[in-house]
């Protein structure tokens, strides 16, 4: 099961890198979203995907899944959610002000003399 997850995470990272190297700003932001999905799935799989009850003491199970990675993922999800929201609004503002979403045309040369 971990092997399958590793391959899936690898594919997510590959797509993320491919998208982030493109010119359009929106494709780059989609790339960052895929990157964080990959990272979150990776945290889930590194602690092992062995069977076990959901981490609720009311389940009265013999073994539970590791609760720590789930808490880490929850934290990382909200953080990347906040950053992505900010990034999207910034991209919108930049589109309004600069009139382009092409990263090639966002070169700056202030202070280059």
């Amino acid at each position: 099961m971990e092997i399958v997850m590793a391959v899936v995470v690898g594919i997510l990272f590959t797509s993320a890198v491919y998208l982030m190297l493109s010119k359009s700003l929106l494709r780059i932001i989609i790339g960052t979203a895929l990157l964080s999905h990959g990272a979150h799935l990776l945290i889930l799989s590194v602690s092992g995907l062995k069977g076990g009850a959901a981490p609720l003491l009311g389940e009265h199970a013999e073994s539970y899944v590791d609760p720590l990675p789930q808490a880490l993922i929850l934290t990382a999800i909200v953080i990347s959610f906040g950053v992505t929201a900010f990034f999207l609004v910034l991209a919108y503002r930049a589109y309004q002000e600069l009139g382009t979403d092409n990263m090639d045309q966002m070169r700056g040369n202030e202070g280059n003399d």
């Binding site: 982030m20 990272a39 945290i43 590194v46 602690s47 950053v83 990034f87 930049a94 700056g108």
Partner: peptide, 30 residues
């Protein structure tokens, strides 16, 4: 304009490095 343009680049680099940080912590935890 300069702030918006450079802000995009700065955020992109740091989003990537933060994702790498999470990945590294995951490996270390495993």
């Amino acid at each position: 304009k300069a702030q918006l343009r450079e802000g995009i680049k700065y955020i992109l680099v740091n989003v990537i490095s933060s994702a790498l940080f999470v990945i590294t912590v995951a490996y270390l935890y495993s």
